[in-house]
């Protein structure tokens, strides 16, 4: 298969970027999108040119490192799929494919298609954890969790923190990511002691970092490679209202736990 690629090239966060047009020829339909880019980069290196920077790690859809907006869609046209699990057979031979980085003020470009998602780590650091004693695994049935709660927590915990929700949101809002983290811990008994503190602090941090506001367009849910539902956003909205207005001063303080 042959493709005409328009790749976003930007030397660093302060440089002005533009598209570079490249022909990708002899692409196997069974290559993943990232393998196709690897081949393009091999050509670049053979010709002594600067390879295009993009991020990847596990290449099996579970690490959340790949971050490409393909023809305007984060992770490409498939539902519930990361860019590394997107295969070239999904495209038409001869098609023009535009590849851009996640675009959000809170995710500055590092180089080309790689962006800095440290903002997510900052959000996690103010509440995306439980302060319990670590050690050996607890007894299997020592702490009963209703099946429904376990399922919902698991759905939210599927979040790999890739940031496709922010990339897809017309407002570059991080609500689905934060909601997934709040919901994942908030559904479980281990998450209860810090439930109010967690939601208030994580939302405050999210606002502070320059993510946009949620306007319920549901683009995040549609783009999420783990298909996390906006139901979790509704749940966070409820939790936030209650916690912000009724929580104690300690719960509302912006300092870390």
């Amino acid at each position: 298969m042959n493709f005409k690629l328009r790749l976003w090239r930007q030397a660093n966060g302060n440089a002005k970027g533009n598209f570079q047009e490249v022909e990708a020829q002899g692409v196997s339909p069974d290559m993943s999108f990232l393998e196709m880019l690897d081949e393009v980069n091999n050509d670049f290196l053979r010709e002594g040119k600067d390879a295009v920077a993009f991020e990847s790690d596990c290449r099996e859809g579970i690490c959340g490192t790949c971050s490409l907006v393909i023809n305007g869609l984060p992770h490409g046209p498939d539902r519930g799929t990361t860019a590394c699990q997107l295969y070239m057979r999904k495209f038409k031979d001869g098609q023009t494919i535009t590849v851009e980085p996640w675009r959000a003020k809170a995710f500055p470009v590092i180089k080309d298609l790689a962006v800095d998602r440290a903002a997510f780590d900052e959000i996690i650091s103010v509440g995306g954890f439980i302060s319990v004693k670590t050690g050996s695994a607890p007894d299997a049935n020592g702490l009963p969790v209703p099946k429904r709660d376990a399922d919902s927590a698991m759905d939210a915990a599927a979040c790999i923190g890739c940031g496709a929700c922010v990339a897809a949101c017309p407002n570059a809002s991080a609500m689905l990511f934060v909601a997934a983290k709040v919901s994942h811990l908030g559904h479980l008994p281990q998450g209860q002691p810090e439930r109010q503190r967690r939601v208030v602090r994580m939302v405050s941090k999210m606002d502070e970092l320059g993510f946009g506001n949620c306007s319920n367009r549901n683009e995040c849910e549609a783009a999420c490679p783990k298909e996390i539902s906006v139901e979790h956003i509704a749940r966070m909205n409820r939790d936030y209202g209650v916690s912000a207005l009724l929580g104690t001063d300690r719960d509302r303080s912006e300092a870390g736990a």
Binding site: G72, T98, A168
Partner: peptide
């Protein structure tokens, strides 16, 4: 974005 698209109904 240079290309705008949507998957949300």
């Amino acid at each position: 974005y240079a290309v705008r698209a949507s998957k949300s109904p």
